[in-house]
Design a protein around this nucleic acid. Sequence first.
DNA 1: TAAAGTATTTAAAACGTTTTAAGGATTGCG
DNA 2: CGCAATCCTTAAAACGTTTTAAATACTTTA
Lengths: 318, 318
Amino acid sequence: MSVTIKELARQLNVSPATVSLALNDDCRVAENTSAKIKALADKLDYVPNNFGRGLQSRKSCLAGYLAGSVTGSFFDLIMHGIGETAAAADYGLLTGITRASEKIDSQIKIFIEKNVDGIILSSTYSNHAKQFEKVERRKIPMVFCSTRDSGRHPFVITDNFKGGQLAASHLISLGHRQLACCSIEKDRLAGNLDAVHRHSLPEPALFQKGEDLVSIMKTNPLITGITAYSDAQSIEVKHIIESLGLRIPDDVSIVGFDDMWFSEIQELRFTTIAQPKKEIGQTAMQMLLELIGGKAVTSRFMEPELVVRKSTAPPARK
Amino acid sequence: MSVTIKELARQLNVSPATVSLALNDDCRVAENTSAKIKALADKLDYVPNNFGRGLQSRKSCLAGYLAGSVTGSFFDLIMHGIGETAAAADYGLLTGITRASEKIDSQIKIFIEKNVDGIILSSTYSNHAKQFEKVERRKIPMVFCSTRDSGRHPFVITDNFKGGQLAASHLISLGHRQLACCSIEKDRLAGNLDAVHRHSLPEPALFQKGEDLVSIMKTNPLITGITAYSDAQSIEVKHIIESLGLRIPDDVSIVGFDDMWFSEIQELRFTTIAQPKKEIGQTAMQMLLELIGGKAVTSRFMEPELVVRKSTAPPARK
DNA sequence: TAAAGTATTTAAAACGTTTTAAGGATTGCG
DNA sequence: CGCAATCCTTAAAACGTTTTAAATACTTTA
């Protein structure tokens, strides 16, 4: 049985109300009464009971985080940022990491049951509309993190257009004239196109999966610079290019995206567009806290950054 | 404002007590009353308030998970397992992922404040004794996951002795006679030694960091098989061995540990001792739930498994 | 039909906190 | 000294649930 306000009150011969007031730094309670109370609370290691408090305040100081997977450190670092900012605000972070579609509904249910004050999402979950309707009906604030929905909820996301520009500009500045670009992320593609247009170069060849490159490279052997969707795709692309008898970066340069830890390992050393993962998480939680506090928040784009390693170089052949 | 038991009671002209009893499937309430109540609860999307409930039951149905980092997918997969099992038991998972020592105390504080029913730890945190004393004083159950302390708390961990045996036996069966083994994990080292002794082979050379291998390989050029501490260390070892002018696996074989996702990528293809990461997480949560339920639990060792890829082969030279 | 038994419902208290309005002391001022 | 003003403290209600013991309704049984 833990120490309660009543117990403190009993021991000091004051009322529970006074204790509560004192512990909440209410200016109405006398200096030395307050001091006495705080001293005893400290000594007995009093911790306010979240149930009693929540019942009254209708706040749980709990936030939910839902993501498909944190494997490979991308969402891991985001979660780091979220958790850190949450803890600083005395918020607990309830995580629901799951790929299995049928488990998402149950995670949302748990978030609701545990009375989270808000939810951060790293996926759009458009096929779970019914469950999210419940969240909205309860007016539980939501923030999208590293993804965005059709517009009703605020989001934090890397400026993908700029990222695409950065990737293409880097390749162009190295002397590459004919590029290829993964078309999965529309904004990055748009940025890529923009850079190419500015230099009056031919449009990049488009691909979705790494394997598409086999035929693309055969059709257009002039391609020397590739923008991949992610560092993970860079691995795939590297393998495919090498299986075509070409070398990285001598014959073909690759720019990845994300700046995952494995891009740094000696065997790979990928040039990439870094996303500020931890900052994205911190910002998302920050925004959620503001939303919970009743403030209006606006979506934010975070700055990507070019990290040059060994997968890009000037093209050997012109 | 959400629907409460009182509201349901009002609408159906019964007492709140009846509603509570009905929703908890108490046999005392009449069949059709119960049916009516459940139907309305369903229709109005009633969700029991965790504060009211927790105040009464003294349970939060919240568990805490504390880990140093989930980067690189090892603890990520463990967390997956924990979360899945937690959700199945209607438990929320509060995560405190942090490397920063000064943030650990604050995470524990948050766990206590939010009234978690139990805590899973993936690190021993021996220098945070004061904070953990508070946890113990409150009799909050704890389970160690993929680590173990000096004995007071139950743990789940891979059978490292067996893992060490597996690694050495594999190398020996390929024909390697002189081995090296990372000595960081004592049980794995013991398993390694055991296998070597069984075959009456010379004891393995010991190293801690990958860089130690530079001098070790020079002192003992007969070494052809290496057991690394982890797949991550395998990367380092590979790089060092190659920088010594030797090839993997032609000249030197490497066995890693963990079976992380990157061990599968084409550039690496590491032979490794796989740890059942997800199962470890599931088991840890299972044990915690039993502990919370008042049962006695015993620690468990999970089976490691040899995964043969391309970093091991029979030694070229005898 | 009264008594005894069973089935169903309910009032009330409890859990720990915060908050509001009112209460009691003390002080200052005329 | 009396009245107001100020300062400090407190009783009581509220939040939503569960639980216990008591109350009510309905069946049997004699």
